[in-house]
Design a binder for these strands. Structure first.
Lengths: 307, 307
DNA sequence: CCTTTAATTTGTCCTGGACAAAGATATTCG
DNA sequence: CGAATATCTTTGTCCAGGACAAATTAAAGG
């Protein structure tokens, strides 16, 4: 009674697990075990949704569903330390304590203080260092904290929103020079993380490239149209770790067919690990890769442009 | 051969039509008629995807699918003028020509010029008038142009991205006073339009309210958690016209159960038409409504807060 | 110990049926 | 004749259960 019930569509919305998967798990593993309403439709109790959310998080981290469904409630104890793909590495960036202090502000829900602290750091470091040694490691830490359950979804949203604002403001304050290349920045429909795009945009703008920011979630066909309309030299896509690696190959192949012939594709972000390089396709896992790719492009401006 | 093929998941991504709907249409109306790959799975030719996209647009505008599938290619001729829900009204806001000029800049893909023109208008009008008499009508026009097929998706994205930036910058420049009420601004999982939220945020900030922007697409449970964590007086949700009205009632009811008892819910945007008022729930169709609701709240700060 | 092959796990897709909510149409009453 | 109510159609979502391929894990072989 105190726990409200969710229909299958609501559970899909809130957990990110597709209806197909929810039904399949029920069939295979015997969990979840939703009630039924008068019409025989599933009604998920709140606590099961909660558990599904936890399972999803552990899965994103590399766990297998079969195992997770088995253990009754030690999944909590097991927490996240197991089988992570990234981490292990000692996390880049200096001054761990300062970064942790920033995260603590978000954790206390003190948005004002967090924004101000960021602004100060920006002023102190300059935009380039700010992006590479503050925002990038900060984002990584938030991702890790989220994996380990130390950050709630809404806290991650607050972090993203406030960080976005500081970055955008900094970018807007740059002088607009508009040298080549023209870079179109966006992401594909299932990818809504935007911080990576903003970081790249900041670095590219600093180098004098002309950036065309189109936000996230562009249908492939529209990306191609935009590239043609803006006569973009480069289309830069960002993929977060959370992006389903399964989709990547087909997606990139399709986009390659749609893009104008003289347009290079940059595939960036931690989610691009499994992408393959190609004649017109570069994989950029780090921000440094992006800078390197930019200067490389300027030396050999693309396959078919004699200029 | 020149037209690439899409599997059903790709079509869902690109058109926004669910797999269930795509299969159902095929069964009922005989369209689309995808080929099959070696495993019997659907492969949609590019031109059919194009047509589906068009159909979706016309449906968002009030057309019924049954009719659309019937007419062979006059759907193009029929265009969008029919059966719109909004429009008709002469469109608010003065100086139509100037607004059209702004849109023309987007249409020419001249982002720089557009941003500069916006900044000028902002400086001239001041933030409040800028929001109410420039951004709001501009957004409405873009929506209409999109409905009528005069704007491509990527052009709408460019418009949104650049407009967002100007608005955010203006908000950031405001002095931070932090008077009550504390307003949490966000949207539900299927709603990703953000301009409405930013417009409200600008107006509320101008009135000295404390705004907590959480971006878009928050799971309902997380909205409730955020409201509790931030001790929000008000949770403001934004719904665009495109939001499926079907979902609204159940969604609001559920959220009402989850929210803290002393928290008021503001349901705003053109997509809120079909929402119902309630004791702790206000429906705000226009920006003026929001301002009115704010001063009303300040006079009677909520049901159970004697203060 | 490393590489190749078999077995298992797991997500997505498929068919075809059912039904309720929303929209359209017909009917009744003021 | 216009407005309100009742009936019929349209349309999206849900359900069950089957199939299969891609990814993982386990096993076998060099």
């Amino acid at each position: 009674m105190s726990t409200p019930c969710f229909n299958i569509a609501a559970v899909e919305r809130d957990t990110g697990l597709s209806k197909d998967v929810l039904r399949m798990w029920e069939r295979r593993y015997g969990f979840p075990t939703p009630d039924r309403d008068a019409h025989g439709e599933r009604l998920y109790p709140g606590d099961q949704v909660e558990r599904l959310r936890l399972i999803k998080r552990l899965m994103d981290q590399g766990h297998r569903p079969g195992k997770l469904m088995a253990c009754p409630l030690d999944a909590l104890a097991e927490l996240s330390p197991r089988r992570a793909s990234n981490s292990d590495a000692p996390l880049p960036g200096p001054s761990d304590d300062e970064l942790e202090a920033l995260l603590a502000l978000v954790k206390q829900h003190d948005g004002q203080a967090y924004s101000q602290a960021l602004q100060q750091r920006l002023a102190r470091q300059g935009l380039q260092s700010f992006v590479q040694y503050t925002i990038a490691p900060l984002t990584q830490r938030v991702g890790q904290a989220w994996e380990e359950g130390r950050f709630a979804v809404f806290e991650e949203h607050l972090f993203t929103e406030l960080t976005k604002r500081v970055l955008r403001q900094a970018i807007a304050a740059l002088p607009t020079v508009s040298r080549s290349p023209r870079v179109l920045l966006t992401s594909v429909p299932d990818e809504q993380h935007v911080l990576g795009l903003l970081m790249v945009e900041a670095l590219l703008c600093l180098e004098g490239a002309e950036c065309i920011p189109l936000g996230t979630q562009m249908p492939l066909v529209e990306i191609a149209r935009a590239a043609a309309a803006h006569r973009a030299d480069i289309v830069a896509l960002s993929f977060s770790v959370a992006f389903p690696a399964r989709q990547l190959p087909g997606l990139l192949q399709q986009l390659g067919e749609l893009l104008p012939a003289d347009c290079t594709l940059w595939v960036g972000g931690a989610g691009a690990r499994k992408a393959s390089e190609g004649e017109r396709q570069r994989v950029l896992l780090t921000l440094d890769d992006a800078l390197a790719a930019l200067s490389a492009w300027r030396q050999a401006p693309t396959v078919a442009s004699p200029d």
